[in-house]
Simulated assay, not measured.
Amino acid sequence: MTDRTALRVADLPQNAPTPFDLRPDAGALEYLREQLHLVGLRKVRFFGDIRARGKRDWVLSGQLGATVLQPCVVTLDPVTTRIDTTVRRVYLANWHEPDEAETEMPEDDETEALGAEIDPWSVMEEALALALPLYPRKEGAGLGDAVFTEPGKQAITDDDAKPFAGLAGLRDVLKKDE
């Protein structure tokens, strides 16, 4: 499978895995780049298979690889990151949506409801979005110290603002008096 077609569950063989191998073309890469707000995206490949688990449930297992360019959170220079991750989704026929107003998220975030189709392309998009670094930083990039104050006054540094900095100074004074 090399296109964006979702697979109908009714057409999947029960006794053999159904392989998929997604390698987005230039147009699809541009679409993904825009959707994920990336500077660049290349070498995307998502491959694996879908297989039956029991009589009614299905498991999608795959490997996602991509090279992404994102702006550095400090300098806005492009930062290149290689993503290589294992992806797994379990589709359950007897999935029940929580009906309470507030519900804790289950630890198993791979499980979802089984619909009429399983869409490896959508899984690839979601897995890529989740694998992106939240705060990409160029090597060696740092914010440094920023000091602001009124003219003629001594600036307060980060060390001065620490809650126990004054206690340490008091401790030192008391030791000298002993």
Rank of each mutant, 00 (worst) to 15 (best):
L92A: 14
C72K: 00
V90I: 08
P78S: 05
D84V: 07
T85Q: 10
L69S: 15
G54I: 11
L76Y: 05
T67V: 14
T86V: 09
T75N: 06
K55P: 12
G62A: 07
V79K: 06
T85S: 11
W95K: 01
K55D: 15
V68R: 07
T81Y: 04
V87K: 02
D57W: 05
V90Y: 14
A66F: 05
T86R: 12
R88I: 12
L69N: 06
V73S: 10
L92T: 10
Q63R: 12
V90N: 11
D99I: 12
K55S: 15
W95F: 15
I83L: 14
V79S: 08
P78V: 00
W58E: 07
G65P: 01
D99V: 14
T80A: 11
L92V: 13
A66L: 05
R56N: 13
W95P: 03
R88E: 10
E97A: 08
R89Y: 13
V87M: 11
S61N: 13
T85Y: 04
Q70D: 14
D57M: 02
E97D: 12
L69W: 07
R56E: 13
T75A: 10
V68D: 07
R89P: 11
D57H: 00
V74H: 01
A93C: 03
R56K: 15
V79W: 13
V73L: 08
G62D: 06
Y91N: 02
Q70C: 08
Q63M: 03
L76W: 07
T80W: 03
D57Q: 00
R88L: 14
L92P: 10
L60R: 06
V90H: 12
I83E: 07
T67E: 15
D77G: 02
I83S: 07
D77A: 15
V87F: 11
Y91S: 05
G62K: 02
W58A: 04
L64F: 03
N94I: 00
D57S: 03
V87C: 09
V74M: 08
G62E: 02
T75K: 01
H96T: 14
I83T: 03
T81S: 13
P98E: 04
Q70Y: 05
D84R: 01
R82S: 13
G62M: 05
V73A: 13
A66W: 00
R82A: 14
R82V: 14
I83A: 08
C72S: 07
Q63A: 04
L64G: 04
D84P: 02
W95G: 05
V68F: 09
D84M: 04
R56C: 02
L60C: 04
T75I: 05
A66N: 04
E97M: 06
N94C: 04
N94L: 09
L92S: 12
D84Y: 00
E97S: 01
L60Q: 03
E97P: 02
V74N: 03
P98K: 00
D84H: 05
P98V: 02
P78H: 01
V90T: 09
T75S: 15
R56L: 11
R56V: 07
R82H: 12
P71I: 06
D77V: 02
